[in-house]
Amino acid sequence: MSGAAAQVRRLLNLVPYLLEHDGAKLTEVAAEFNVSEKQLRKDLETLWMCGLPGGLPDDLMEAHIGEGGTIHLENAEAIVRPLRFSVREAVALLVALRALAQLPGVADRDALLRAIAKLEEAAGERGAQASQRVTVAFEARATVLDRIRQALDAGRRLRLEYFVPSRDQVTERDVDPMRVILSDGHAYLEGWCRRSEAVRTFRLSRIVAIEVLDVAAEVPEAAEPNDLDEGVLRPAADDPLVTLEVTRHARWVAENYPNEGVEELPEGGLRIALRAPDQGRILRLVLRLGADGRIVDPPALADQVRKTAAEALALYGDEGESGGDGDDGVDRAARGAA
């Protein structure tokens, strides 16, 4: 879209906005339209040149800036309504609202469903149809989400039994809830963990048991919510770097693990650099991969894999020492596409 086209769109929306919000401040309107105050002033100057043809003084719009930067628009009856939704706008609105409404036990579900129905009607047939073609699902269990909501609403502490897969352990912790995050297809609880005295994120599907305690939640003022821009489970920059090589049968590793870079190898293989806060997770991954993956670096982790695999093989006695080419090829296919 050209610069002029973007400005035309903005002006066509700015006019009804200013009619609806007479006396709105320059700073507020600039923020709302995501432009600088300087640009907004230019837009308003442009409006003085716009209006009904005819050349009479009353035909053109008058955008006055009053005391304290308040905007008053006159002679602007030519454009009283915003342009109807584009197909993409309809998709953006409806898909987001439906994704939230499909969550079991989400607050305001009833309001969401009513809003969706009204917006579908306003979106017109094409917009509403296209919006049906994009769906986003988050996994969350109703009971867990419901308890978290109760705790958030009442300002109570939660007691969780939480499963940590990399350690194969269920841990108990008291958490003062801050918010629920829906991201990457999962729901998470973010809160102040009393045990680690830090902000922690818990995947709802790993909460084994949850109880609302009769204790007021106390989130310290210094507790900073995680920045979500890079995703929820974002490795820290100082987490140790692990380099893996996988065959073409295990390319899914690059798809499923946030990584620091992927390099193509011959025969469709990949070299993948991962930042892993918890190397137990990588250890398990490499055991799962078998002949389809290996650790290149660090050597200590590769050794750990070797040692762990050897211990496991010892359980099988002679069988673990030689031959046998058991191949459960379906395991690979299960992750395939198309």
Partner: peptide, 9 residues
């Protein structure tokens, strides 16, 4: 399972 573990080792 044995084959996987051996390959990992």
């Amino acid at each position: 399972v044995v084959a996987r573990l051996r390959a990992a080792m």
